[in-house]
Amino acid sequence: MSDTGLEDGIEAANARFDRAMARLETSVRSLNSRMRSLNRIEVDTQRLVTERARLATELDKTAARAKRLDDSAHDVSRRLVEAMETVREVLAK
Rank of each mutant, 00 (worst) to 15 (best):
M1T: 01
M1Y: 00
M1Q: 02
M1N: 02
M1L: 06
D3Q: 08
T4W: 02
T4C: 04
G5A: 13
G5R: 13
L6H: 06
L6D: 05
E7F: 05
E7D: 06
D8G: 00
G9E: 08
I10E: 00
I10A: 04
E11N: 12
E11V: 00
E11R: 11
A12W: 01
A12K: 05
A13Y: 04
N14V: 05
A15T: 09
A15G: 01
A15C: 02
R16H: 09
F17K: 10
F17H: 06
R19I: 01
M21K: 10
A22V: 01
R23V: 04
L24P: 00
L24D: 03
L24I: 02
L24V: 01
L24H: 07
T26N: 11
T26M: 09
S27F: 10
S27Y: 05
R29L: 08
S30K: 04
S30L: 07
S33I: 00
R34V: 02
M35D: 02
S37Y: 02
L38F: 05
L38P: 00
N39T: 07
N39Q: 12
I41C: 01
I41F: 06
D44F: 01
D44H: 10
R47W: 05
V49T: 13
V49G: 00
T50L: 08
E51S: 14
R52D: 07
A53W: 02
A53G: 05
A53D: 14
L55Y: 02
T57H: 13
T57P: 00
E58F: 07
E58W: 05
L59M: 12
D60R: 14
K61E: 15
K61Y: 11
K61V: 15
T62A: 15
A63Y: 12
R65N: 14
A66Q: 15
A66M: 15
K67C: 06
D71Y: 02
D71A: 10
D71G: 03
S72H: 07
A73K: 08
A73R: 11
H74Y: 08
H74S: 14
D75A: 15
D75N: 14
S77H: 13
R78H: 12
R78S: 15
V81Q: 08
V81C: 04
E82I: 07
E82F: 03
A83I: 09
M84V: 13
M84P: 01
V87D: 08
E89F: 05
V90S: 08
V90P: 00
V90Q: 07
K93S: 12
